[in-house]
Design a protein around this nucleic acid. Structure first.
Lengths: 130, 130
DNA sequence: CAGGATCCTCTATGATACTG
DNA sequence: CAGTATCATAGAGGATCCTG
């Protein structure tokens, strides 16, 4: 691209700098809808808009659309329109999007393994203050 | 706060259900401040409040405190007060908090590896619409 | 030093109504 | 079916002042 050499040296990957790519990663997958979409498509392959809508419980139409557009922009999924009578739109993870599944799985594993501990800790913490 | 009796581990782990622990994981580490605190403490060991404040660029006092309390409640870090003349408070990851470092590293790796692709995709996407 | 308490401003998100 | 457009609002998050 056209990155000036200026922001290469000092910047590298400093998660603590506001300009770090890592921060933008959180924008991409840090919100629940985005991650849920990724996981849904990862687990079940291509899905239609309505399928995603049903599958991901609680998401509003606006948020779903907005999330999908964002992920498409990021190159994590593709949007395919089939101009049939009732329009049909399919969403599918790109190869890039698929690579996200791995790290996500690790997080998922962590959650499944340790959330009970977190819950216990929360209870204990809240107890003190009661 | 609308969980009546949903304390049970309940129906396995359906990420798509609103009650799934996975969703709460996002609350815990999905926001940037929390993840940055975890990473900071993970990389540099115990830190004082002021150190964290300086290290994590851009965080407000309110957010830092709020984040730290949340992580403490979740059992991911400990808060140790030393009642010296100017009070001294140290934050340190718990063993549980340390286990989070692994999955976080995977995410970090992904970001460092693929963010350029994401950036390229964004540029291309935005181009079309111009 | 390490916050607590306030006030205030956006932004994210939901609900609703309309359309190709 | 798969959105777009609009309106409305809770709450995240920042700025500021104060204290043990």
């Amino acid at each position: 691209m056209d990155l000036p050499t200026a922001d290469r040296p000092a910047a590298r990957f400093d998660v603590f700098a506001a300009s770090c790519p890592s921060r933008r990663l959180l924008d991409a997958i840090g919100n629940k809808w985005a991650s849920l979409v990724i996981v849904a498509l990862g687990l079940e392959g291509p899905m239609r808009y309505s399928e995603l809508s049903t599958r991901i419980d609680g998401v509003s139409q606006k948020m779903l659309t907005q999330t999908l557009r964002g992920l498409e922009r990021d190159g994590l999924l593709t949007r395919t329109v089939t101009p049939s009578v009732p329009v049909r739109v399919d969403y599918e993870l790109t190869p890039l999007g698929l690579t996200l599944l791995e790290p996500m799985r690790h997080l998922k594993d962590w959650a499944e393994t340790h959330m009970p501990e977190v819950d216990a800790s929360r209870e204990a913490y809240d107890q003190k203050d009661t």
